[in-house]
Structure formats: C-alpha cells, structure tokens
Design a protein around this nucleic acid. Structure first.
Lengths: 126, 126, 126, 126
DNA sequence: GTGGTCTAGACCACT
DNA sequence: GTGGTCTAGACCACC
C-alpha cells in the first residue's frame, strides 16, 4: 500500500479497513488483526495502528474486548450506514467535479449510463 | 492554491487551467498570463510555469507566439474534447470507487439520482 | 562534440542519438546511457540530458522504465520511419539550396550522379 | 537577414552575394553597392563590409576601380565556376548526410527523384 | 515585455 | 542505481 502524503496515514488505513468490511472481506463480528499485526500488515507504526482502532471504535465500526482483541461490529445496520456514507462521499465528489465542468446532475447521469471505458471501447491496449 | 504532493505540480496547474477554459473563465483565443505572471499566480517557479504552457501546447490546448505570449486555442472542437475527456476521467474514477464498494453501475446511477447532499438537506442551497 | 549555437543543444543531441539508432550503433531494445552518463558523454547538464530522453520518448524513439533506465524502441518500423524522415529533411534542404542556385531537380540529380569529391579525385578513399 | 553565430558574418555575407551573382540578381560587370551601402543593407559594420569585398576580390568574384567602386567580375567563366563550387558544396554535404544514414549515392539519387515534399503531397497545411 | 534554453543543485520514488 | 520533478538564477531571441 502506498500512502498519499497529503492525508494522515491513520485515515487512509481506516478507509481501507472500512472497504474490507463493506465488501465482506471482513465479516460481521470477525476478529480483526492485533494492533501489532495491523502495524506489520500496513507497514505503519504500532502507535498509528492503535489510533486506527481507537478511531474506528469511536465511529462504532468495531469494538474491543480486553484480552480478547478487536472485532468488527455485529450490527449489520452499521455496515449499511458505512456503505452509504462512503458511497455518498463518492457521489458528492463526483457531482462536485461535474458541476465544476458545468455539467448538471441530469447530464451526469446520462453520461454515466452511456460511459464506455477506453479499454472497453477499442480492442487494443495502446 | 495548495498542491497534492502525490502529483506533479505542473500537472495540477495544467488541470486548473483546463478547468478555466472548459467553463469559459478563459475564452477561446484569449491571451493567457505570461509565464512569469503564471508563476506568481500559482506560486511556482517560472520554469515550472513554462513547462505547464509547453505541455498544454503539446496537447493542443493553447499555442504560443514568440514575444507575444501564450493564447487559448481557437478551436472550439478542442475545448469540447477536453470537457469530454475530463468528464470521462471523473466517471471512471467514480464507477471504480463504487465497484470497490460492491455497487454496480445501475445501482450507482440510482443513488446519484436520489442523492441529497447534507447541505441540501439542511436547506442550504449553495 | 561541439554545438551549433543557433540550435538548442537538446535538439542536436537528439539528432546525434537518432543517427546512432538509424545506423545501428544503438540496437533495437538496447539500454541507452543513464541520464547522468549521457550528460557526461555530451558534456551537458543532467537536466538537459533528461529532456533529450523525454522528447525522444514523446517521439516514440525510446521508452523508459522507472528505476531501470531508458531503452531504444523495439519497433523496427519506427526506426525505418526515422530514417526516412531524416533522409527527407536532407533532400528537402538539398533541393532548396539547388533551387536557390537556379538548378532544377533534374539537373541536380545529374550533378549528384557525376559528382566526384575533391578527396576522391585525390585518390583518398575515405 | 539573421546570422548564424557559429560562422563569421563576413563569410555569410559573401555567400549571400555569390548567390545573387549566380542567379543573376547581380549581373556580370554590374556595379555593386558601396562599402557603406553594403554595411547598411546587411546591417553590418563598414569594416566587415570592406572585408567582404576584399575577400570576394581575392577569389576573383569582383574587382574594384579606385574612385569608381566595386564591380561584379566580367568573366562568365568565373560565375559558372562559382555556381559549380556552391553546388558541389551542397552535394558534398548532402551525400555526407546520406552516408551517415547508411544510404549510398545510388539510393540517394533514387530518393531525390521520387521525393515529394510534405506540402506537395497532401493538400492541407497542418 | 514575451517565451525558450541552459546550468546548478536538490529531493523524491522506484528497482 | 534509475528517471522525474522542482527551484534558483542566468542568458538569449523575438516583438
């Protein structure tokens, strides 16, 4: 994983973990890596890893049991909410960019519906 | 303007200028700031500013006359092409993010159509 | 190498390298000197050497891999095209000079066919 | 007229004048501009203009009569010789360039015979 | 005044 | 080690 130096690393790791939960790579209630393992896995400082879990817990994304470890929340509701929030961020960013290009929401929707990526459109990679 | 350290400054300035052209803040054929003024305006080195214009020219976005200055292209066609390209990039990035959340294009379109920004919900029209 | 002050150095070095490729002193796909070595070899600034490679790459003459180096293109087609282009430039310049002397293309061809260099006439084969 | 800083100006002016003679813009025996007028015409120093005539005279291209001025040679033979010499230089330079591209004289002749300039070949200027 | 080129020296990311 | 970017400051040619 490579980090955007403009953003705090702990935020970027939080986002990556939320992704894992939303798409099911981390199941509801599943045990998450130890702080030390998380630090190794993301090549970050153990202190930073600890902060990641602390912030995620404050958002209700996970909870910790002393001596047991950290676990993904068991509330499906919460996961749906996360998904909506992350999707909302994407949409907001997308519509903002389109607006800056002078493109309305309706036009944007039409464009998304018709969108063909370059790779799809033509058969060659160049 | 604050720069994303993950991207070359000259690319970010190029994008900002393209935006200005696409939305008409810079008109077709209009004289653009001198290399030195651009450097001041974006707080970059005159060399970097020169590179911005050179790269933009190689993309056909502007043209330059020695001793006269740099000018926005006079081909409206080119501006439309730029707009499409920039919109395409936004869509690609948007759909990629949604796919990573496990959301299909069709679902994404539905979400965009129903999307209400926080600001809108609060009654803030801006 | 001594440079013609009337032409940008980077263009002259580009031409020299293209010559090397066209006549096979630099083979298809072969690794080219590093930017720093090129700078030493041609007694130019590393920045200028980098520009040479960048411009050559934009012409499709070479390609570059980060951390690996710069390599001659692997497309023989491209080399043939370069050769034709460089020959075309020579011919254009030659015919232009002849025309300025009031000599037609047909006459020029006849002169070339009968041409004996001073060195040849003296029996010097080089 | 713009001068190539790599070559002495007086040589460049000499070449320009020889051109004028070879193509007949300056006729056999015609009076040439005074040293002062030549200096103005080519925006060079009068000393340099004097040197131009001195060198041309030493080559037999012109002759001077005290109190009368400088005149183009009256020997048609000489003009032919100049033309041949200048054409020979062009041919030598041309064949040298071709040889450096690995192209023989015979091939070069074929290319010249078939040569179509870009402008001639296609009807558009771009 | 305009853009174009060059040098010097620095820091970065990738291998 | 590789190329890529950026700054600083200089000189040039053109208008």
């Amino acid at each position: 994983m490579d980090y955007n130096p403009a953003l705090p690393i702990y935020l970027q790791v939080m986002t990556a973990i939320k992704h894992d939960i939303v798409v099911g790579r981390l199941a509801l209630g599943e045990k998450m890596p130890s702080v030390r393992d998380l630090a190794i896995q993301y090549t970050i400082n153990p202190n930073t890893a600890g902060r990641v879990y602390k912030e995620l817990e404050s958002e209700g994304v996970c909870f910790t049991r002393r001596g047991m470890g950290t676990f993904v929340t068991e509330e499906e509701e919460k996961v749906l909410q996360m998904k909506e929030e992350m999707a909302g961020d994407l949409i907001s960013q997308f519509l903002g960019g389109m607006r800056r290009l002078g493109i309305s929401r309706e036009e944007a929707i039409g464009l998304v519906a018709r969108y063909q990526s370059k790779a799809d459109a033509d058969g060659n990679g160049k």
